[in-house]
Design a protein around this nucleic acid. Structure first.
Lengths: 214, 214
DNA sequence: TGTACATCAGTGAACGCGCGTTCACTGATGTAC
DNA sequence: TGTACATCAGTGAACGCGCGTTCACTGATGTAC
């Protein structure tokens, strides 16, 4: 039973065991450090302790690997957003809870963008076709997507009476634009290198604006 | 007197005449079609009808060329924003004018992003260090930057009494985030391929949100 | 429980490619006399 | 106005590199009898 990764020195057979996942994991590490361009097939196989062409047993080409890595990065983003919601202190009333959950969607999104800029950029990198921030993985069984989390939070805002029903349609794109834009400015725009505290404040201000303007 | 570009067939001397600008122009064309990654030194020299290493008479390396192209793309963005303002019909009063000018800043920004996605991405590509959307070119004498245009529009909003003075500080980052985020979603996000009309509408909605939420 | 065999994951070697960058060069241009 | 010369923009050839991808292979594994 070979361990799933880092078995370069001590693999007991020439068989890897779980190369597909090892390659995705390696790709994630590359993406973490250098974004989507850094997801290089040969580098991933190197990191998995395997010969370059071995990757072709599991991915039709480099782009297929990149796509898998991208989807995984997107899943990580969603998980971070859910974690942000899960960490919320209990709210006094349902309205306050809905509002806190909504804000956590944005805060989690921004947290991930700042803590994992390489993965964030990779998640939103478009290999051929995109929209997988919105659509769940074709291979089913994935958790909620970032877009779905945002939609649910907005629905709750309406239920709690904090957002008029007639403002609900299209609201996700307003909120998403504002938060996504700040993320971009923080990652490779003029707000790069902002102190995490200031970045957090900027995030709260943007979310304030969304709440007011939505 | 060789023409500035496309003189591959009919250059009368082996001297180019204005290679530096020709390379930037070629780089812009590459960026237009494929974004910053497409700004390949050899491709630029090819398009300029010159041998690869000739570029080194004018740029220390590939990155210096990319940076020059990026700055030019940013200038194009600013010019598009100014054009959007200049095309505004005369307003009835000063407040209406200020408001229209503010909205034109965002509309022009989004127009450029959608019409020239490759250049837009290149303008915001960070070669080493960035923030040149905010800071004027070191080599002086450039026009207003996008950031300066936005700042001026916000100042006018305050003067016209449409924005409380205490909301002015930091307002550029709120507005910028929202518009920039929409641009990103339109260019390589889930809103890609949106019909220009719908994209325009989305832009107006985002600007509405900004006006309300700022 | 033991043997024969098909499968297919990973090997080893090689390919062609375009890239950025270096070197020593040449010859058109502008300047000094 | 004409000649000698220094400058330096562009040439020509070459480099080493890492990349994605292909091919024919081998041998560990699981399955059928």
């Amino acid at each position: 039973m070979p361990s799933a990764e880092n078995d370069k020195p001590n693999r007991e057979t020439y068989r890897h065991g779980d190369l597909r996942n090892a390659l995705i994991e390696a790709g994630l590490e590359l993406a973490r450090q250098g974004g989507p361009e850094a997801v290089v097939l040969r580098a991933a196989t190197r990191q998995a302790g395997v010969v370059p062409n071995a990757a072709y047993r599991h991915f039709t080409d480099r782009n297929a690997l990149l796509q898998a890595v991208s989807q995984t990065a997107m899943a990580h983003l969603a998980r971070t957003m859910e974690a942000e919601q899960a960490a919320l202190p209990p709210a006094t009333d349902e309205a306050a809870a809905a509002r806190a959950r909504f804000r956590a969607v944005g805060t989690g999104y921004l947290r991930f963008a700042q803590e994992e800029p390489g993965l964030f950029r990779t998640a939103f990198h478009v290999p051929g076709d995109m929209a997988h921030a919105a659509a769940p993985t074709a291979a089913g069984a994935a958790g909620k997507t970032p877009f779905e989390l945002l939609g649910a939070a907005l629905d709750d805002l309406v239920k709690a009476g904090l957002l008029p029903e007639d403002r609900r349609p299209g609201a996700e794109f307003l909120a998403w634009s504002a938060v996504h834009g700040l993320a971009a400015l923080l990652i490779d725009g003029p707000l790069r290198g902002l102190h995490p505290t200031q970045a957090h404040d900027a995030g709260q201000h943007v979310i304030d604006m969304i709440e007011r303007g939505i």
